[in-house]
Design a protein around this nucleic acid. Structure first.
Lengths: 118, 118, 118, 118
DNA sequence: GTGGTCTAGACCACT
DNA sequence: GTGGTCTAGACCACG
């Protein structure tokens, strides 16, 4: 994985894992890779993974069982999660872009045009 | 003004001024307050204002005239810049969000729904 | 049974069994379930039960008889132990709490109030 | 300061600072020692202080201002804080001790006796 | 100088 | 082997 330099790695990794859960890469009740394994996969320090797992637990996505491992929480509504993520992005995107004087309609037009390539 | 704690103050101030220019608070070719004045207005360190002005100049919103002060750039640059910025944002946004399995149409639908508030 | 995630399971199980002994679920001189049985009942690893039984024996609540099993200790030891434990807890508790400027009388008042629920 | 070995240092330091705020050692709106200073005072690693400050901010006790420092939040009701701490301790203490079969009255009696020394 | 992030490496408690 | 804690030391963005 490639990390941008702007936002902290642990935030990027957190959002990546959220996305992956939303997309079904990690199933409910399934064991996540151990912190050390994930550290290798994600190419970061195990402590960073620890932090990410802790935050995801705080947010209700993961559950840790001492001495056993970290598991995907069983009370996650994947669809809800996906929508949540998308809405958050939209909100941020619009905040970024509306003040430049384009309307939502114009923005949407540009998005649909883009399909053909700028 | 109140600043959040999450994003750096200079970013928040920069976006505020952009918005104010877009909304006509600072007119084209008009002189901006000096860094020290703006520092008082915005309740930040003068160094922070310097930084903000420099970044806004880099983005084409402001123009510095030595010994005279900082002025709002003329319209043409702005329009060009706006489109450029919007396109860049859209590209990044779509890359982030299409990945979750929503189509451009669905995204646009959500954006337009959002106008009514989530 | 549900275990919290904060404190180690073996502590939670230990306190549960203590409570159960105090409340008469396991009678004095009665045989406790074997570690394997208890492991099934308590839904934990047999090793964890071993550890718990060992600690409870150390505290005088249980007695192991080789080849026979683990039994609830006789009453006398228990009473003695209880007072000892309580005194120790009180001492620690007061050290923690008097420091904040409350007197013993105030503390007691709060404790008695608490019976009605905070 | 002496740390027990049972609970993590960052928890102990967090509770200590809470107590100190409650007792007025650190006044409202006052700047806390920098993480590095506090690290020396508390004889721990600066990262540990960071963690403590972050948690205390999460709980609303502290406010960090980027590049400036960490400050005691201005919306703290010290008396309320003190009571909160004491109540928490009482709750934990009683949970520990009631199951041994003593009533609240007996506990209080022991506490008041203790004043004269066990 | 301030807090924030990250790494490497260590030790520990838990299962 | 698992997560949790802690240290030492580094680098960076911020004001």
């Amino acid at each position: 994985m490639q990390y941008e330099n702007q936002r902290p790695i642990y935030i990027q990794l957190m959002e990546l894992i959220k996305k992956e859960i939303a997309m079904g890469k990690w199933k409910v009740e399934e064991k996540m890779p151990s912190t050390r394994e994930m550290a290798k996969i994600a190419q970061v320090n195990p402590n960073t993974v620890s932090r990410v797992y802790a935050l995801l637990e705080q947010d209700g996505f993961l559950t840790t069982r001492r001495g056993l491992g970290t598991y995907v929480s069983n009370n996650i509504d994947k669809e809800k999660l996906k929508k949540e993520i998308v809405y958050k992005r939209i909100e941020k995107f619009l905040a970024d872009v509306l003040f430049l004087g384009f309307s939502e309609q114009e923005i949407c037009q540009m998005i649909l045009e883009k399909k053909g390539g700028f």
